[in-house]
């Protein structure tokens, strides 16, 4: 299977839900220092549901495409469901044949979104290992 299938490259070139949200919103940033990927995400949560989400990214094709695909799935989801996603369920969702080597690229979007929610709930933040 081709990790850089055409849909990944399309999501990379034209990410869905790209940009920033207007207030009211909660925001978070995350970096993957080993790659130099940077991601900023804005969420609007209403009645425990993600009502809207936008992001800005400077990263590799895998991290940007993963965030783009994830963003489409997350909008409308209940935050308890969002917090239950882990590496394996994310891979299934994305349909990506990613090896261990790029796991941080795949997880960057998810960990950023989950930590925005956890920070808002004043709960402890997740580490990369927590998601594996």
């Amino acid at each position: 299977m081709d990790l850089y299938a055409q849909n990944i490259i399309e999501h990379y070139k034209q990410p869905r839900n790209h940009g920033r949200l207007a207030e009211p919103k909660i925001s978070g940033k995350q970096m993957n220092r080993s790659c130099g990927d940077q991601l900023a995400v804005d969420l609007r949560i209403k009645d425990d549901q993600i009502e809207d989400l936008k992001f800005e990214a400077n990263g590799c094709a895998i991290s940007v495409a993963a965030m783009s695909i994830l963003s489409e799935k997350l909008i409308g989801q209940n935050i308890t469901e969002v917090l239950a996603i882990n590496y394996q369920s994310l891979l299934d969702m994305l349909g990506l044949p990613v090896g261990e080597r790029r796991y941080k690229c795949v997880l960057l979007g998810l960990i950023t979104v989950q930590n925005i929610i956890l920070a808002e709930q004043k709960n402890p933040l997740r580490t990369w290992d927590d998601l594996m």
């Binding site: 990790l3 850089y4 790659c35 130099g36 990927d37 990263g59 590799c60 790029r102």
Partner: peptide, 10 residues
């Protein structure tokens, strides 16, 4: 136009 990690991987 391509991130270093994508180049390395490919």
């Amino acid at each position: 136009n391509v991130h270093a990690h994508d180049v390395g991987d490919l």
